[in-house]
Nucleic acid binder design. Structure first.
Lengths: 139, 139
DNA sequence: CGTTGACTTAGACAAGGTCTAATGTAGGGT
DNA sequence: ACCCTACATTAGACCTTGTCTAAGTCAACG
């Protein structure tokens, strides 16, 4: 993750305590947190950090391509620090947990020319939905 | 669409003017509207219909499996009445238009057992992203 | 070590959606 | 045909997520 900070500094980022903390939270577990969860964890390390800064920082990381924004439903967006490896997501419908998965084959290839309607395709997202083991037991 | 209303009545739905209007809007064009767009169109036919009723009705249609809820980004959810035919979506990144598409193969099969982490899979969504012909010209 | 422009802050604001308590009504029972 | 009553609808308050603003702060260059 210090790699990340180094990369960002080379791109002209000012290295502030707030940004370091956000990067640190993202680098922790490989769970995909919401912005507010990231804020809550950041506050534990740097009590005065504001919500706006967390949102700003996440937005910058997304537009720099270091983090992927995942909107699995109409709820809060989640942030996936694993931007440098192609992967898709597996989402628990009950608790919202997201895991990274690696399906076989190239999903883009599954759309025949006759179904492209003249679109210029730039990407594809595949979201597998189901119940995680913990939620499956409860139901 | 009277099919739909009949099916719903058989499942114990009370047939109100409001619900008929919402069904009628969904049955119109095959565009995927947001809840507020549906409300706006419903108001033209039944001026006193409330936002809450539209949201309630859409939620019921979704949980009855008659309509699919599509969240393409962090914006408003859109409602797709084409729930009885398996299909996926092609979204224009610029203007947000959604088209239904029919990829080849079963995307669920692309997730190997070793990548399922004990989840009970219930479905998969594939969202192709790109630029529609109109937006591609502008850029 | 001073300067300055990028960064951060608190809190107001906005969009999308949900909830509540009061009121209305579809449709079965008579 | 007409009541009942449980289900449906309403207006509007409220909640969550996210954005914006104006004022204050500070990293890093010189």
């Amino acid at each position: 993750m210090s790699d990340l900070l180094e990369r960002l500094r080379n791109r002209g980022w000012r290295l502030t305590a707030q940004r370091r903390v956000v990067a640190q939270v993202l680098d922790g577990d490989h769970i995909h947190y919401t912005a507010d969860e990231i804020h809550a964890r950041a506050v534990e390390m740097l009590p005065e950090i504001s919500r706006a800064t967390v949102y700003n920082t996440l937005g910058e990381l997304v537009s720099l391509g270091e983090v992927i924004e995942v909107s699995t439903d109409g709820r809060a967006k989640r942030y996936d620090p694993n931007a440098h490896h192609a992967h898709q997501h597996l989402v628990c419908q009950s608790c919202g947990t997201i895991r990274d998965v690696h399906p076989t084959g190239d999903p883009l290839a599954s759309l025949p020319d006759g179904e492209r309607y003249g679109f210029t395709l730039s990407g594809v997202e595949v979201t597998f939905r189901g119940l995680c083991p913990a939620c499956a037991q409860v139901q």
